[in-house]
């Protein structure tokens, strides 16, 4: 992890390919994709199902290895980073918002958030108090002690956003954050994500095929059949 350097370009992807399987059943999900995200940007990746959006996001999130190409995050070439270094890299640099919220069912809303902070080295009490603050920021401060099963879909996604922001990671990756929400709630949650990311100074990459939230993007990248077809501002 010693090749990190200062750069306004948060994400820089060149010639990225990903092939699933091999031989006759090989499937090329990404075909020499070039992609970037600058610091503070709110970028959306859009496209039909099977276009490679989630594969791209997974590679950006360092949870999937590319077959070919170079992925640089904060000047650090993660495509060559050793496997055992990736967890701490993810913990330090990236916050995740998942389509299915992915909260830990046995932990309360605040504990879900505090967990990330504790993994980053925060003392339990400080982590808990910061978690409550973040919950207040996403508008559900009163739900700190609630378990995920006692929260609505919108509230769960707010907790997920607060968890993603915990510890101020410079890069937020959101996978279809509105998929399990109704139109109005989806819009509100995405606006919240954008506002808070701006306040926390995070760069956001959102994968979505929900056109109702496209107008919130600084830039939209259209993926189709594993390739970037169009970019629009």
């Amino acid at each position: 992890m010693n090749n990190i350097n200062e750069s306004p370009r948060v994400v820089d992807v060149n010639g990225l390919s990903k092939v699933y399987g091999s031989g006759a059943i090989a499937f090329e999900a990404l075909k020499k994709v070039d992609f970037y995200a600058d610091a503070g940007e709110f970028v959306m990746i859009s496209g039909p199902s099977g276009s490679g959006k989630t594969t791209l996001l997974s590679i950006l999130g360092c949870v999937l290895r590319p077959t070919a190409g170079r992925v640089v995050i904060f000047g650090h070439d993660v495509s060559t980073t050793r496997e055992n270094e990736l967890p701490s890299l993810r913990l330090s640099l990236i916050g995740f918002v998942f389509q299915g919220f992915n909260l830990i069912a046995s932990l309360s809303a605040s504990e879900n958030i505090a967990l990330v902070l504790r993994l980053r080295g925060w003392e339990p009490k400080q982590a808990q108090s910061e978690a409550v603050k973040l919950l207040a920021e996403v508008g559900i401060g009163e739900k700190a002690d609630s378990l995920p099963r006692d929260l609505s879909g919108g509230q769960r996604q707010r907790v997920a956003i607060a968890r993603a922001l915990a510890g101020h990671p410079p890069l937020l990756l959101a996978d279809e954050p509105t998929a399990n929400l109704d139109g109005q709630t989806g819009l509100q949650v995405t606006e919240l994500l954008k506002d808070l990311a701006a306040i926390h100074g995070s760069t956001v990459v959102v994968v979505t095929h929900d056109p109702r939230i496209h107008n919130l993007a600084d830039r939209i990248v259209q993926l189709e059949d594993g390739q970037i077809r169009k970019e629009s501002l």
Partner: peptide
């Protein structure tokens, strides 16, 4: 802000 954010993770790591 972008620059300072870009530098932040270096310390963070």
């Amino acid at each position: 802000q972008q620059l300072s954010n870009a530098a932040g993770p270096i310390d963070a790591l």
